[in-house]
């Protein structure tokens, strides 16, 4: 186990201290995650509480625009909900779905990719053909299929309550081949290199070789892919919500908030779509920047070369 002192001496900390972009990204990300986690304490209103929503307050612009009101700093949406609170709660939903789905994809994909790539043979062909099958139909189809079954089981009314785990499962399960393919490709390149041969000669068990020797060398593509996949998962969730298969419309995620606000882009109420859009960009950008930084640090070829 790495101690804190050990961490302070590590190359990771050393390069982090010298990378301003990484510091800012981490600060922004931590801030956003904290805000999302403590949403009920931070948000001025509870957008899920009907008592706080009045249709007569709809489409109030942000406070700095003409007609803005102090009570609603970032304005209100078409239902009369406070934008700031709705965005904070929406980000919470998006983060849970985004990270949850990517974690599921990554766990499945990385394990399958590592073992399939290292062992080859039947295991490899089996999983790669399974990946082909999975890739040949879109996640939307999987989602429609699964939601039809689920709705039949739990009924339309209860569906809203299981929407979050459902979305994580659907997006997670349908996109694992992205990881498996990427990891397998790296493993194929690595497994015949000298250091792997050496480990094999030294008599390490194959599980240990895979995890201790090969896995760190496949990390950089995984990190890059993860940053893209988080953004992808958030987008997929927005698409599913739009089709009525995702979050209920009265519990919007960031993606579905942008989607619903899009209808107002011509009518002057730009803030309904632009502000959550901006928040999503900041969120995804900070994840991306951190991903870039981690890739540079973890890539043995870069820092030892």
């Amino acid at each position: 186990m790495m101690t804190f002192a050990g961490f302070k001496d590590s190359f990771l900390w050393y390069s982090f201290k010298r990378d301003k972009i990484a510091i800012i990204s981490l600060l922004v990300l931590v801030l956003l995650v904290m805000v999302a986690v403590f949403a009920p304490l931070v948000a001025p209103y509870d957008p899920y509480d009907p008592e706080m929503i009045d249709i007569m307050n709809s489409e109030i612009p942000p406070v700095w625009e003409d007609g803005g009101e102090k009570a609603f700093v970032l304005g209100t949406d078409s239902q009369g909900r406070d934008m700031l609170s709705t965005m904070i709660y929406g980000m919470r939903v998006s983060l849970i779905i985004g990270f949850g789905a990517v974690a599921l994809q990554a766990i499945l994909g990385v394990f399958i990719g590592l073992f399939a790539g290292y062992h080859g043979g039947f295991l490899d062909s089996f999983f790669m053909r399974a990946a082909d099958v999975q890739l040949s139909f879109s996640y939307l189809m999987v989602a429609i299929f699964m939601s039809a079954i689920l709705q039949a089981i739990v009924g339309v009314a209860r569906f809203g309550e299981i929407a979050v785990p459902f979305l994580i499962l659907v997006i997670g399960f349908s996109q694992w081949p992205q990881y498996a393919r990427t990891v397998r490709a790296s493993v194929l390149a690595e497994r015949n290199k000298e250091y792997v041969e050496a480990a094999r000669v030294a008599g390490f068990p194959s599980a240990q070789i895979i995890i201790k020797q090969i896995f760190p060398n496949t990390l950089s593509p995984i990190l890059v892919l993860s940053t893209i996949q988080v953004a992808n998962a958030v987008m997929s969730e927005a698409a599913l919500s739009f089709l009525g298969l995702g979050m209920p419309i009265d519990r919007p995620s960031l993606g579905s908030l942008i989607n619903s606000g899009f209808e107002f882009i011509f009518s002057g109420a730009w803030w309904i779509t632009a502000l959550p859009g901006l928040l999503l960009v900041i969120l995804v950008l900070s994840i991306n920047m951190l991903g870039d930084f981690l890739r540079d640090v973890f890539n043995p070829k870069l820092y030892k070369g």
Binding site: D49, P50, I53, Q79, V156, G244, D250
Partner: peptide
């Protein structure tokens, strides 16, 4: 969709919790 959403939150004010789902 927006009408349904508004109606659902209005019912919330008299204690009726609405699980709303909209579709094409």
């Amino acid at each position: 969709e927006k009408i349904a959403e508004a109606a659902a939150s209005m019912l919330g004010k008299i204690g009726i919790k609405v699980n709303l789902k909209t579709m094409p």
